[in-house]
Amino acid sequence: MTIETETLQPTRIANRPQRRAKRDLSRNVLLPWLSPIAILLVWWFVSAAGIVGPKVLPSPVLVVAAAWELTLNGRLPQALVASLGRVLAGTIIGVALGLAAGLLAGYYRAGQIVVDKPLQMLRAVPFNALVPLFIVAFGIGEWMKVSLIAVGVLVPIYLNTFAGVRNVDSKLVEVGLVYRAPRYLIAYKILFLGALPSILTGLRFSLAIAWIALVTSETVNANAGIGYILAQAQRFVRTDQVFLCIVIYAFLGILTDYLVRLLEGRLLAWRNTYDGR
């Protein structure tokens, strides 16, 4: 009997990682989608049962049909390319400026004096209040839209970079000083990398704002983009298309958030943090 248990044990141990991987897949990949699927089912039921009319709440089937129609006539792909291009350009500019300002203000007391107050004031201004100003400055073309997104993105990146740098343990900076490391090395390997968790949190906030800024800018004057389809759909009371645009915004938002999380997983692998139980 003892022999039997001894031969059983190894296989049981060998099986365990596989079983755990399977459980992790269902827990981490499928479980979070349960509530969105439930919402979809409720939506479907409410519209199919006729509780709310199709002009207010079109059924999910109608929304999918609208997507199909707009894909076939080419408007949706064109809109996606235009919108994604604006968000990408605005985000890149905003992140670059926000990072530069945050590192400058974080590293140098003098930089903080120059940069911090104006950006704190900018933070207090709702960015869509800047639309009239930006129209005057940049016209109603692409630049106005990209700049508006860039400004929206800049603020959270700046705030989180600055806070992240100032949160780095001064004892680590002291190590850099003792070993006479050049400034760029202290700035990069100690302050920037140390601030990275905070910067990535800022990036997630920023991307959420980028999508909001996109909608605002595209409803001003556009002839392409998701916001343009949205404005047109509203004008012609195409609620199915309105819903489609909302769903697309939701998915793009989740997608960008997911990409930042992937980035966090890669860049912050060193962290030893509590993941919830």
């Binding site: 190590v175 003792v178 090395l185 990398l193």
Partner: peptide, 22 residues
């Protein structure tokens, strides 16, 4: 060179990068 009471390693750099810092 200084060694402090706390090792003062950058947690975001691997051991070899910490040793070779600068």
């Amino acid at each position: 060179a200084v060694a402090f009471q706390e090792a003062r390693l950058m947690p975001w750099l691997k051991v070899a990068e910490n040793v070779g810092f600068g």
